[in-house]
Design a protein around this nucleic acid. Structure first.
Lengths: 256, 256
DNA sequence: AGAGTGTACCGTACATTGTACGGCTCAGGT
DNA sequence: ACCTGAGCCGTACAATGTACGGTACACTCT
């Protein structure tokens, strides 16, 4: 980040802000809610690294420094954005638990998370450690844990299982987001890019030979028309993980 | 990123640079290799967001703009750094394949990747799409695919299985890196931070109640002395994934 | 009604970034 | 001895986050 060093964060203040109402307007009608919403729109459109305090202020037609009346700094703003987009993930706290079986529940959870992650690719850039205790994130944790309760798993195992699934979805989504970003930054489609580097690549790789990588890489490319098909990786990984988890769960319920 | 917009990338030039020798010195002894090494040292010490062209130049005792004689820009420099740190991952192209069985091989691969990722936490910040074809990354792909060859898996499945494991390791390592970074940025240890926000948290969360999350969160915290134990998540996830993969592999070899 | 006070708002300034541009300097060929 | 091309680098600029201090408005109290 350029400019003056980020201010001292003061976690307690951040937390209070996170859990606040966000709707009390100042004398020009400016609210925390409006700022966060505007920032999300900007980030959705141009990405987080192009989101600046000036851009957000411009969109709201206020002076740049007015934002600082409502929000301590950019870091806290992104924290708020982060917690906000997870607000509408589930209809209620039992939606996942209502699915038929833990497997369907975890699939449901995975897909909902996938949807948010692809709708707001900038989420991947937000440092999540600080926001782990925002209201929506906390609610999300509760909601996603419930379908794993009562299967014979220990509390630690429940947490581990959920976090395994979420980490996987996040990893795949991140790769996809990155691909989209490079694509847009360079202005080249996957295919154009490939055509452009192809001659250089053969020149440069002559002399070396990668039998397995060459064969597999070609197969993957032919199969998906691309080096990387997020949907396939998502379901392949999810299926594998759920199969692994099912072994654990069966083992636990057998003991019981 | 601040400053002038990043220059047009020209993928072909990047690629040639990636595969170049990096050792031809200019008249002040400056080489691409030296620049990349210095940059890695800086990034290891202060993180990627604090790495600047001026810092690297200073460390090498050359003018800032001299770097641009050897490297087109900061983006290409980070690409070079990325490929570089993966250079010494394996002793040779068959080290993983030499492990006793595919399971041990994947565990070996996971741990090696884990080591690099934790030794150079800034890797997570580098956009990896562009570097996917650097010499060391390509070699790595070849090396890591080999132990999966001849198990009855299709080429696409081999790629999916490997990438599943790698995505998992990366996800966990990233979370760990983030935790370390916030910890260092705030100057607070995990425990101090917790103590600081604890009163605010209870104030703010009064009125809401999260039965499952509360119980599980407490259990996790007590069990690991922290909200997040990377080693445990790593092995739990790896075991689960490998169990899932083993079902697939048995199924494939049964058909054959 | 008038005065006083706190808070919302915001203009300006500054440090820091990546890098475009153009000049200087030196090694090596002729 | 001179020319040429490439390595080197000082300066300048646009963009960033935000500290600081000033201005103006909405409210309360007399």
């Amino acid at each position: 980040m350029a400019g003056r060093k980020a201010a001292a964060p003061d976690p307690a203040r951040s937390l209070a802000l996170l859990w606040g109402a966000h709707t009390k307007p100042g004398r020009s009608g400016l609210t925390v809610r409006a700022i966060v919403d505007a920032a999300i729109e900007v980030a959705d459109a141009v990405g987080l690294e192009a989101l600046s305090m000036r851009t957000v202020a411009e969109r709201l037609k206020v002076g740049t420094m007015s934002l600082y009346t409502h929000v301590p700094g950019k870091g806290e703003l992104t924290d708020l954005m982060f917690d906000r987009v997870y607000g509408d993930l589930y209809a209620d706290a039992d939606e996942p638990a209502r699915q038929p079986g833990w497997r369907a529940a975890l699939e449901f959870i995975a897909h909902r998370n996938w949807e948010v992650l692809t709708a707001h690719p900038w989420i991947h850039e937000v440092p999540t450690m600080r926001t782990a205790l925002g209201p929506n994130i906390t609610r999300k944790y509760e909601t996603e844990l419930r379908p794993l309760d009562g299967l014979g798993l220990t509390d630690v195992e429940m947490d581990s299982a959920l976090s395994l699934v979420l980490t996987h979805v996040q990893g795949i989504a991140r790769a996809g987001a990155e691909q989209l970003r490079t694509q847009r930054d360079s202005g080249l489609t996957d295919e154009e890019w490939w055509r452009q580097i192809s001659p250089t690549l053969t020149t440069v790789m002559s002399g070396t030979h990668f039998p397995t990588a060459g064969r597999v890489g070609t197969a993957v490319g032919e199969h998906f028309q691309s080096a990387l098909d997020p949907t396939h990786h998502l379901t392949f990984g999810l299926t594998t993980i759920l199969n692994g988890l099912s072994q654990l769960i069966e083992q636990r319920s057998a003991v019981q």
